[in-house]
């Protein structure tokens, strides 16, 4: 396998909790706590988990929107050189920012309403020295074509566009400088289903054509299934399971992954299964439970889960789990599609 585009090692981000008049540090929220993964060229890794699990904080550290507390973020730049983004200062970060771009969740607030589409998509080109207007507009037209929007839209303003079209514009802008890594934080969760499908397909096509690496941050496991090569599940700041997509969905090894999969409503009334309904709420990351963070909600927890902190351990090559009982538990995944299913849904596509 070729060297990864991104290699994150033991990433930590702790936010101080300040109390009292003098802002005394009373503790830390371990928003990201020892997170490691890598992404290859042309690959999608999804970070999934519920609110407060640290998935967005992880992505913000990688883009250096915030500085990590410790750990390495090794990024392979266009010349094939490996650079630790975690340690760079602002000036040194600038040239790298071209190669890592972001697609946002909300296509309505992420585009400047006073700028035309040509200006929005052309801005990163201008900032990076493409001063000739004609050259810039030619590149913008090329980008519009790439995201399947008509050239005629160049001089229009964002308000004239639907949510799906705005998301296409956001993608075109992200692609302007030929990045190698795209961080997409919930890029389709604000869109209607019929439009969401178009954007998911577009992201898949662009990846195949341009060899992009995606870090896809999402809470919707159904969408994740359609975009990912590999999936990492986070719970209270830690990766609890990471595996190739099919393995994670069909043979999950962590009880939290099993519960997450079981909780997803399936669009088929004939599959109203008995769900695993977890008790209680996601643990508070400023005061996480001892041992395995998941133990208070885990249906399989034993006494030792309360005291011992499990390490992320590879069970099968490429499939790692953070659970003391991973090897002995037989957990339920979601069944692969039935070939001759009567379901209209299963036949579609």
């Amino acid at each position: 396998m070729t060297a990864p585009v991104l290699d994150v090692r033991a990433l930590r981000k702790h936010f101080p909790i300040r109390r009292g008049l003098f802002g005394r540090v009373a503790g830390h929220v371990r928003a990201v706590d020892d997170v490691s993964f890598s992404i290859a060229r042309g690959e999608t890794l999804s970070l999934v988990g519920e609110s407060g699990c640290g998935k967005t904080t992880t992505s913000r550290c990688i883009l250096r929107a915030i500085a990590p507390t410790s750990g390495e973020i090794r990024f392979r730049d266009a010349r094939g050189q490996e650079i630790d983004v975690a340690r760079l200062d602002r000036a040194a970060l600038r040239p790298l920012r071209r190669q890592m771009q972001m697609i946002f969740q909300d296509p309505f607030s992420s585009l400047n309403p006073r700028m035309t589409i040509a200006e929005i998509i052309g801005e990163p080109l201008l900032v990076n020295g493409m001063r000739d207007t004609r050259e810039r507009n030619a590149r913008v037209a090329e980008l519009l074509e790439l995201v399947q929007l008509p050239r005629a839209y160049l001089n229009r303003f964002p308000h004239a566009f639907s949510g799906g079209q705005r998301q296409r514009i956001g993608i075109a802008r992200a692609l302007a400088l030929n990045p190698s890594l795209i961080v997409a934080d919930e890029p389709v969760s604000a869109l209607d289903v019929s439009v969401q499908a178009q954007i998911v397909n577009l992201m898949l096509e662009l990846q195949d054509r341009l060899g992009l690496a995606y870090l896809f941050v999402a809470h919707d496991l159904s969408v994740v299934k359609h975009v990912s090569h590999r999936v990492a599940v986070m719970y209270v700041g830690r990766i609890v399971e990471i595996a190739p997509t099919a393995a994670l969905f069909e043979t999950p090894k962590h009880p939290y992954t099993e519960a997450l999969l079981s909780a997803v409503p399936v669009p088929d009334p004939r599959r109203r299964a008995q769900r695993i309904v977890l008790e209680g709420d996601v643990a508070d990351p400023s005061d996480p439970p001892s041992g395995c963070h998941f133990h208070p909600r885990c249906p399989y927890a034993q006494d030792r889960c309360r005291v011992e902190t499990p390490a992320l351990t590879e069970l099968v090559p490429g499939h790692a789990v953070r659970c003391l009982r991973a090897a002995e538990l037989a957990l339920q995944g979601v069944a692969p599609p039935v070939a001759a299913g009567p379901s209209h849904v299963a036949q579609g596509g």
Binding site: G164, S194, Q196, S222, H226, F249, V264, V266, P337
Partner: peptide, 25 residues
């Protein structure tokens, strides 16, 4: 029919393309 086909599902093949409805609302 189109709406049902365009829903992503945890039961799909990994990286399966979705059926789309052309245009927008």
């Amino acid at each position: 029919r189109a709406l049902l086909r365009s829903i992503p599902s945890v039961l799909a093949e990994p990286r399966a393309r979705l059926a789309t409805i052309s245009g927008s609302i």
